[in-house]
């Protein structure tokens, strides 16, 4: 009975590992592309913060790198690391530092916001020039969906699993 109520560790690990791949796709390949007058512009998760350059704008760029790249990537990497060990009923090296870090990171990971922003930009910029969707936007959609499932897993339950060993 209990097993059906909470997500299995295998399912969550599979989701976080796919999450890593989806993030890498959106970091490497374009999310959106525009073309006008023979000039092409591409943007992906990694290059979007570049829009903010210059002294004070750099602060906003750093915030964007943190919430759109560093936090979500750390979230799926950390959870994969912890779960890979938890599946063998072991505690991962650094367990008691990493699990609280995961809890802190969660509200700062904003891939869903980036995804919705990209959809808005398709309409906004699409009114001026032609916009095409890149592979990155589909992987962001997939990542947002996966994370919604992963968030149903209460990582605090790993603390009690740790009690066993």
């Amino acid at each position: 009975m209990q097993r059906h109520r909470t997500l299995s560790l295998q399912f969550v690990l599979a989701s976080t590992l796919s999450g890593i791949i989806f993030l890498l796709i959106a970091l490497i390949w374009p999310v959106l592309t525009t073309s006008f007058g023979g000039i092409r512009n591409e943007v992906n998760l990694l290059t979007a913060p570049d829009a903010f350059n210059g002294d004070w704008f750099a602060i906003t760029a750093y915030v964007m790198v943190f919430v759109c790249v560093a936090a979500p990537l750390a979230q799926v990497l950390l959870l994969s690391w912890l779960l890979a060990f938890a599946l063998n009923n072991r505690r991962a090296p650094g367990f008691s530092a990493l699990l609280p870090l995961l809890k802190v990171l969660r509200p700062w990971a904003m891939i869903e916001v980036f995804f919705l922003g990209a959809l808005i930009v398709v309409v906004k910029v699409g009114g001026w020039v032609s916009v095409s969707l890149g592979p990155g936007i589909w992987s962001l959609a997939a990542f947002s969906g996966l994370l919604a499932a992963v968030h149903r897993f209460d990582s605090a339950t790993l603390w009690s699993k740790q009690d066993l060993r």
């Binding site: 512009n41 979007a48 906003t60 904003m110 922003g117 990209a118 020039v129 916009v131």
Partner: peptide, 17 residues
């Protein structure tokens, strides 16, 4: 944070000299 993302993407995608 939505507006920050929208501004960033717009500025990256609208660079036609």
């Amino acid at each position: 944070m939505l507006d920050v993302v929208v501004v960033a993407l717009t500025c990256r995608l609208v660079r036609f000299g």
